[in-house]
Nucleic acid binder design. Structure first.
Length: 490
DNA sequence: CATGCCGGGCA
DNA sequence: TGCCCGGCATG
């Protein structure tokens, strides 16, 4: 985590320097908004901006006192602009410094729009772009379809542009800078940098179809990175999986859709909005969902513009059974395992609900953050020698429920005797339905005063007693190691 | 005293 | 991390 933080900070600061300067001076609309936005999205923009585009060619206005990034958009420059709910590619037609507005010709929509300079960002290093093409600004207004005599030229140019964009930034259709950022475009443009980081993004998990059309895909989702972190780092994890072959070349040019992951792991996007939990297959979908249902229509306010990103998270599902053992991927992706949580069997009728309730706990973590964090990761914890993690393992299941899980590993020798730790339920040792692990809810009391105290000696016979010292080899490992017996739990 | 097991050391 | 053991608590 620390590492994440630091990394993150690093980025942020980087960005701060570059994109958003000291608050205030900038010609931006409302300082307030700017601040907020800055705080929330900077990192994204940062990585995106710094890594991909501008650096190389764009013209930055002297960072003067304002510090705000001021790009002098030049006619013909290829840019991205957030329009109609998606990131569109377009060409700058005119940049009005006075109003800090930019007129952009949207390639996709074939129309011209005029928006604030801050809403427009440069597409990566545009090669030798035809300088100031001949098309004249037709109107500052939006939606002025334009098909002119120079249509031909335009077409050519557009074709070129499209090609460029295809090769450089598959993200064309992906969501706004916010999270989209790390996605492909970055991957594509910034192979040399943070390749590790990049790898963790969808490209590796999803089959990376950047073909905008495929509903499922969308490059890489914020992955653990985005949302979670902001929600308080609930997910633990940096966990960048460096598993992605970082082949610069592959990245630079239109790489054939990244190979699919061998095992069909589907990436879905889950809404993290409290009590929602909707799962959609496309990032766009989820964004839309969040925006529409939870954020309300705040499209125009900068401040919320990319907020949706914080409310969904990527989850990986195995094709076959959603419940299936979530891949080894431990941390971040709250792989579809969260659900089980909800399904946890209610505390067995007579579980010892220890006396002291802990009303206080309830108020703790926001359910949102929590629910998605802990569980996901915990559920697949496996331990061979459980004794170490064994005794009552508490995991916050929901703000107010603490689950105490414990499981015992079947000793290599006698699998027949897989014990079950349960003192409330009177199981005899033989197995218990749940194959993977045995768990039962126990409302544990908060930091037990006497936590340090030794665990009372269990009444059950332990290996030592049962097998006798002479058969020490039949003891469970824990016993052999003079640890709490795992075979005969009490 | 026998047992259970925590804490800690070692490889 | 696996393994072992000193030493303490408990019955």
């Amino acid at each position: 985590m620390a590492s994440v933080l630091s990394r993150r900070l690093g980025k942020r600061s980087l960005l701060g320097a570059r994109v958003l300067g000291p608050p205030g001076a900038a010609p931006s609309s409302e300082p307030q908004t700017e601040l907020l936005e800055g705080a929330a999205t900077q990192p994204f923009l940062a990585s995106k901006d710094t890594s991909c585009r501008e650096q190389p060619k764009e013209i930055l206005k002297a960072p003067g006192p304002s510090g705000l990034q001021q790009v002098a958009f030049q006619p013909g420059q290829k840019v991205y602009v957030w329009y109609g709910g998606q990131e569109c590619t377009g060409l700058v037609e005119q940049h009005s410094w006075a109003e800090d507005k930019v007129t952009v010709w949207l390639l996709d929509q074939k129309l011209q729009i005029c928006c604030k300079a801050e809403e427009v960002w440069l597409a990566e290093l545009q090669g030798p772009i035809p300088q100031a093409p001949a098309y004249r600004p037709v109107s500052r207004n939006i939606d002025v379809p334009k098909r002119k005599s120079d249509a031909v030229e335009m077409d050519e140019m557009m074709a070129a542009m499209v090609l460029t964009s295809l090769s450089c930034s598959p993200v064309v259709q992906s969501p706004p800078g916010a999270e989209a950022n790390f996605s492909v475009s970055r991957a594509a443009c910034d192979p040399w940098k943070e390749s590790g980081d990049v790898s963790d993004s969808g490209s590796s998990t999803t089959s990376g179809h950047w073909s905008a059309s495929s509903g499922i895909s969308t490059p890489s989702p914020p992955h653990p990175q985005a949302s979670p972190k902001y929600l308080g780092d609930a997910f633990g994890s940096p966990q960048t999986d460096n598993g992605f072959e970082t082949d610069p070349d592959a990245f630079l040019l239109d790489e054939p859709a990244p190979r699919k992951r061998k095992n069909s792991v589907k990436v879905m996007y889950k809404c993290l909005w409290p009590n929602c939990g909707k799962v959609l297959r496309s990032i766009v979908g989820i964004k839309r969902h969040v925006k529409a249902l939870h954020l309300g229509d705040t499209v125009d306010s900068d401040q919320f513009k990319r907020e949706e990103d914080f409310y969904y998270t990527e989850v990986q599902m195995k094709e076959e059974a959603a419940a299936g053992a979530p891949t080894a991927d431990p941390a971040p992706t709250p792989s579809m395992t969260s659900p089980p949580l909800a399904l946890l069997p209610p505390p067995p009728p007579k579980t010892q609900s220890s006396g002291p309730e802990h009303p206080g706990l309830e108020s703790y973590l926001p359910s949102g953050a929590l629910s998605k964090s802990a569980p996901g990761s915990f559920w697949h914890i496996q331990a061979d020698h459980a004794y170490q993690a064994l005794p009552s393992f508490q995991i916050p299941v929901s703000p107010h429920i603490y689950t105490s899980i414990s499981w015992a590993a079947a000793p290599s020798t006698a699998s027949s005797l897989s014990p079950v730790r349960s003192r409330s339920l009177s199981f005899s040792e033989p197995q218990q339905p749940p194959p993977a692990m045995k768990s039962h809810l126990i409302v544990t009391s908060p930091p037990r005063a006497q936590s340090s105290a030794r665990k009372a000696r269990g009444e059950a016979k332990k290996c030592r007693k049962v097998y006798g010292i002479e058969h020490r080899d039949q003891w469970c490992t824990a016993c052999r190691w003079k640890k709490a017996c795992q075979r005969f739990l009490d």
